[in-house]
């Protein structure tokens, strides 16, 4: 089998003036992923290639990068599906480069945190020291389940045309999580969460280019979450009122 041409964008901002593309020959094998190829190049050709990875099975979201021009997870992209001859690996767009393929996700996580990505309850005491459970029906679960699969890899945000220029825009990941928690039947923080997104760099800077959903490796469909969020921001009404959130359910004293 012919070797794979693996082209990696090499760039150390501390030392280098500009990025350069370096080609490595990697022996192909069946089922080889781009991550496998990169690890081969790092282990046997050049130990200084900077890359980040962990689980190798599309669960951790560490190895997001631009592969042949499109944001993908290196571990979840087979060499064969790219034609099997040439693979070009570059760091994700829209994130600062630390070195080679390693990008800085710091501001991305800050934007995630800024949308209050957790269940908010009015009774903080009950939330901290629960006396029962907050129940959810299967129907209520299906409204948010797909959005919970987000692994925060950053691919959506690197594909987003608004993020390309607007530093204050939360980005598809954070906006989708804002919807995910506001639409959760157990949540009481929807009104505050959507009000915080109703500004000139909030949810309305999304124009449904849909690239986030196109590149998402987990089927989260951020574009769907954001569009569903918009109607609530427009009316100022969260998906459900505070008093419609699930009540605390306590197991009956007897009968268990």
């Amino acid at each position: 089998m012919k070797d794979l041409k693996l082209v990696v964008q090499r760039f150390d901002p501390v030392k280098d003036a500009s990025p350069k593309m370096v080609e490595y020959a990697v022996p192909k094998r069946e089922g080889m992923t781009v991550l496998d190829a990169l690890l081969y190049a790092r282990d046997y050709v050049d130990h200084s290639i900077g890359l980040r990875f962990s689980c190798r099975q599309a669960s951790c979201g560490s190895c997001g990068m631009k592969i042949n021009g499109r944001p993908r997870l290196a571990c979840y992209t087979q060499v064969e599906e790219l034609g099997g001859e040439k693979v070009v690996a570059q760091p994700m767009d829209n994130f600062a480069i630390i070195k080679d393929l390693v990008t800085d996700l710091g501001s991305f996580f800050d934007k995630h945190k800024a949308v209050t990505p957790r269940l908010v309850r009015e009774d903080g005491e009950e939330q901290e020291r629960p006396t029962g459970e907050y129940l959810m029906t299967p129907g209520e679960l299906s409204k948010v389940l797909q959005f919970t699969y987000c692994i925060k890899c950053g691919l959506c945000t690197s594909s987003c045309p608004t993020v390309a220029t607007d530093e204050r825009y939360p980005g598809p990941q954070a906006l989708t999580q804002a919807y995910r928690y506001s639409a959760d039947a157990r949540d009481q923080g929807g009104a505050e969460r959507i009000a915080a997104l109703d500004n000139s760099h909030g949810v309305w800077r999304c124009h449904f280019a849909g690239s986030c959903s196109y590149v998402c490796p987990k089927g989260v469909d951020p574009a769907l979450g954001i569009q569903l969020l918009k109607r609530h921001v427009m009316t100022g009404k969260p998906p459900h009122a505070k008093d419609e959130a699930s009540k605390v359910w306590k197991a009956p004293e007897s009968g268990r």
Binding site: A96, D104, C160, P161, V163, A164, T165, S211, Y214
Partner: peptide
């Protein structure tokens, strides 16, 4: 902090290559 800015800038608006049909419509 030794990091290099890498936002796409206006090419993110104007160049939909590699992306979906909706991106071209955008």
């Amino acid at each position: 902090g030794g990091k290099a800015r890498n936002r796409r800038g206006l090419s993110g608006w104007l160049n939909p290559y590699h992306y979906n049909f909706e991106r071209w419509a955008y």
